[in-house]
């Protein structure tokens, strides 16, 4: 017995060491960016900044946080994320709940129509033309509306509703409650966990969306954070040194500012994540037990 326990302990140590290494591999680059954002530019250029700031300064962070272009991009991203997530939950729930009622006539073809869009879609150009003819170019609606229902999330929610005990609704019906009343008084209050999980999925998707704004937004004042960040980071690549015009090279933002921009952009999601993480675990379990 003792032998097995010792073996277990060794295994534990190996597992923990491995996990710690993985965690470090994720953490160290982040720390490096963080310390660069707190370092003087000369120290970064001469390669002296590792995990600890050299020539400590808040100037980079201050510059970023008072830069109107950055703040506007942050505002756009926040707006899209908040409005998008609230809207997406509403629309997803309104689609998912009826689809969970298998006894409704014609429900199967409708469900199939949803699933069909998971596998096939019009493609880039038709989507672009659609958004354009809807008059949504350079409009934040182009970032929100197409993302309101993610079929995968909708199916998760549908599964959740299917797993709610049917007797709940039956008893309510026996008591004389109308369908609307059932939804408002029973279903919605019971949906808190699934709403929380799916909101997190949606919020992360809206927040980190880079491709849709790349396509649909050309007005600089509507540029969300991810697009702004990508532009800033690319400025200093070796490739752009060869292809950029000399005047753009003369105006490249300093390394410290770029790193500070990355840090400040990561903060909001970094702060929200730990608070919502527990729902992630619940969310993975949603729909896993058929009952």
């Amino acid at each position: 017995m003792r032998h097995i326990r010792a073996g277990d302990r060794v295994l534990d140590i190996v597992v923990y060491a491995w996990l710690a290494l993985c965690a470090l591999a994720c953490l160290l680059p982040f720390l490096n960016v963080l310390s660069k954002s707190l370092s003087a530019n000369w120290a970064i250029v001469s390669g002296q900044v590792g995990l600890w700031p050299v020539g400590f300064t808040f100037e980079n962070l201050y510059f970023v946080m008072t830069d109107s272009t950055f703040l506007r991009a942050l505002g756009v991203s926040a707006f899209v994320t908040v409005v998008g997530t609230l809207g997406a939950i509403l629309f997803t729930a309104v689609a998912a709940y009826p689809l969970s009622k298998k006894h409704l006539p014609g429900i199967k073809p409708i469900l199939f129509a949803y699933v069909f869009t998971m596998l096939f879609n019009g493609g880039l150009i038709p989507n672009y033309l659609l958004i354009k003819s809807l008059g949504l170019m350079n409009n934040l609606g182009a970032l929100i509306l197409p993302g309101l229902i993610n079929v995968f999330n909708m199916l998760l929610m549908k599964n959740y509703y299917e797993n709610l005990p049917e007797s709940l609704e039956e008893s309510a019906k026996l008591e004389g409650a109308s369908n609307l009343r059932i939804v408002l008084r029973i279903i919605i209050p019971l949906s808190a966990p699934v709403f929380a999980t799916i909101s997190l999925f949606y919020a992360v998707a809206f927040w980190s969306d880079w491709f849709h704004p790349l396509l649909y937004i050309t007005d600089p004042s509507l540029k969300p954070l991810q697009l702004y960040l990508r532009d800033i980071v690319l400025e200093a690549s070796d490739e752009s040194r060869l292809t950029q015009s000399i005047d753009n090279l003369l105006n490249v933002s300093p390394e410290g500012i770029r790193n500070a921009t990355i840090i400040v952009s990561t903060l909001p999601i970094l702060l929200v994540y730990p608070m919502l993480q527990k729902y992630f675990i619940k969310g993975i379990l949603i729909g896993s037990v058929k009952g």
Binding site: R72, G75, F79, I144
Partner: peptide, 21 residues
């Protein structure tokens, strides 16, 4: 509130809040 905000956000050329230029 969601419906109202959504409509306000997506109807105009200039969305409310966020990137109000």
């Amino acid at each position: 509130l969601v419906v109202v905000v959504l409509l306000a956000g997506c109807s105009g050329q200039e969305p409310a809040g966020g990137g109000n230029k």
